[in-house]
Design a protein around this nucleic acid. Sequence first.
DNA 1: CGGCATCCAGATGGATACTG
DNA 2: CAGTATCCATCTGGATGCCG
Lengths: 125, 125
Amino acid sequence: MGKKIFEKNENIENCPVRNVIDRIGDKWSMLIILLLAEEQVLRFNEIHKCIGTISQKMLTVTLKSLESDGLVKRTVFPQIPPKVEYELTHRGKSLLPHLLALTEWANNNMSDIKASREQYEKVNA
Amino acid sequence: MGKKIFEKNENIENCPVRNVIDRIGDKWSMLIILLLAEEQVLRFNEIHKCIGTISQKMLTVTLKSLESDGLVKRTVFPQIPPKVEYELTHRGKSLLPHLLALTEWANNNMSDIKASREQYEKVNA
DNA sequence: CGGCATCCAGATGGATACTG
DNA sequence: CAGTATCCATCTGGATGCCG
């Protein structure tokens, strides 16, 4: 297996893996990245409509987080009413293949995982 | 880009991607999977020592979750004092390449991401 | 239109004590 | 050794209302 992912007693809070998963692993980031990957460029309210169940607050918070990590580019058009467009950056696009791989794995394994969960519940009843 | 990841107004809570990320995205699951991938088989307290900062409770909870999803196999040796071993299942191992890919991406991009965050903070001061 | 501020419920997870 | 049980602090995220 070669190089160690992390050494024992290392400060795990600071390891890059956790740091990335902390962002990707929240409730909405991954969905937004996948959506932007499909649609290329979207306005705030377009994203909001596509992900009907997200609140305005969480959409704002998540987009800010993605922007601050340099995964999403935010373009403001200074007009009234305002217009803001979002799209993936190069860095965001470079993350995409891995997310798509995870997505595919999820689609392939979800029914088995659900069966495992139900079996587990039944045994530990 | 071909097939849609998710259709608009689809029930996002039930999509496989989110369902997987919900597990992987918690505080400890991914670390435990990576650790088991390296060490093959570990006892409860061995994992605990390797991940010094995890509480006993969260280790139990996380291992149960991974076991119920069929990603980790739990073997109890009926002896006193008890001995329990944990290892990845085939399904768990099949997830591994994607996690390693994410890990590598994280290592390659972390310094740039940190720089972006600091830059973002500076601009929005 | 694209936010921000505030308040609040529920989920997550840590500390501690106890057990077979 | 490998847990379980309980309590509690913090974090996440939803609802609502206001603003340029």
